[in-house]
Design a protein around this nucleic acid. Structure first.
Lengths: 198, 198
DNA sequence: GAGGGGCGGTGAACAGTGTCAACATCGATG
DNA sequence: CATCGATGTTGACACTGTTCACCGCCCCTC
């Protein structure tokens, strides 16, 4: 933002994280550097080290936390948008599928944020844990009788692997230049596979 | 390696790639730097630019090509090791599964190489294309009648996504500290899902 | 065999990075 | 008001990738 006039910044930490998020959105991890961000805020680079003791890695983790939090917000939103029906089983199935679609949707919207979310995770803020959302969906599937109790172990891991792998391949990987229609087909096909195979 | 005595190196390009592979094996992408590698070979940093016009990125792609080639070699090996039976269908299924297991196996052995293989791909050396191997396995499944022709489109993509995602989560991702037995369970579970859901 | 061309090396330099230690300043607290 | 801790600055260091002008060496040709 604008250069400041006071000696102290006020809330440099938050400002750096915000700037880091903005930088990551365009340019991914490579774009978030301590010197550049600090300079952009009209602040010395070493000032950042007061707020991020481990240096750059700390900042990247903080940016990743924001990215993960936004991801779970998106998942929750799309899950909540599923219209309830009479059948708990189809409801659980639809919510499960909606979560998978939302995952890919978010990653395609914010590939840069997704990148740093993956690469810099100290893990386990409860409100920034996409795996938890998936597990809860799986729990619903079990409760609704769609998924047998015996099949529960590692079900969330397997489903996550499929969706996450697809997201990686579509954004950073060899599938990154797939045209949108073929991309959608691939997403549908993958979600079909997960639903049928779990 | 040792410092050289002659003015010309002989095959600096190959030597740099080799050193890059060695560096990537321990330390991943971050460990392969042009200056360090050149210095390690007793050579000036700028000498490398004769052989890698685009600079570091070129070298990383070359290292990635080696990694990809080794991966498809591993896949081919494990596929070839599947003992043939009387039933073409179970053969195809076993080979398909073997390829998935081999993928994760290789990635767990060489996480550093896998990292640069993913991040630096200009794609499509025919002998360094793991996706091609998977597609051929899927072709066998179709030929053997295990997979209907209608289900063929994007089947390889979906399967790849699952296995690749699992590999990423297990090496660079949140599942990276999973104990080996739970890791194996997750692999089995994911392959089961793919096999049942394709 | 003598000479040139060019491939493949050198050294210095530049911009930029992360990081740290010593110093300066402000706001709040005794 | 004086002090002190939190916060920002300056300057430096060791790296990084990259480019440039220069030059040593080998091979090919005359």
């Amino acid at each position: 933002m604008a250069a400041r006039t006071t000696y102290h910044h006020g809330d440099l930490k938050a400002a750096l994280v915000e700037a880091g998020v903005a930088a990551a959105r365009e340019g991914g991890e490579a774009a978030v550097g301590l010197n550049r961000l600090a300079a952009g805020l009209g602040v010395s680079a070493s000032a950042a080290y007061r707020h991020f003791p481990e240096g750059l890695e700390d900042l990247l983790v903080a940016v990743g936390d924001v990215a993960r939090r936004r991801l779970v917000e998106r998942l929750a939103l799309r899950i909540s948008e599923v219209p309830p029906s009479r059948d708990a089983a189809t409801d659980a199935r639809r919510r499960f599928r909606a979560s998978g679609r939302a995952y890919v949707e978010y990653v395609l919207e914010e590939p840069g944020l997704f990148q740093v979310a993956n690469r810099h995770d100290r893990g386990r803020l409860p409100d920034a844990d996409p795996f938890g959302v998936l597990e809860s969906c799986i729990g619903d599937l079990v409760s609704a009788g769609v998924l047998g109790e015996a099949r529960r172990p590692d079900a969330a891991t397997a489903a996550w692997a499929a969706v996450h792998g697809l997201a990686v391949l579509l954004t950073e990987g060899p599938l990154r230049r797939l045209p949108p229609d073929r991309r959608d087909r691939a997403v549908q096909r993958t979600l079909d596979m997960v639903e049928a195979g779990l």
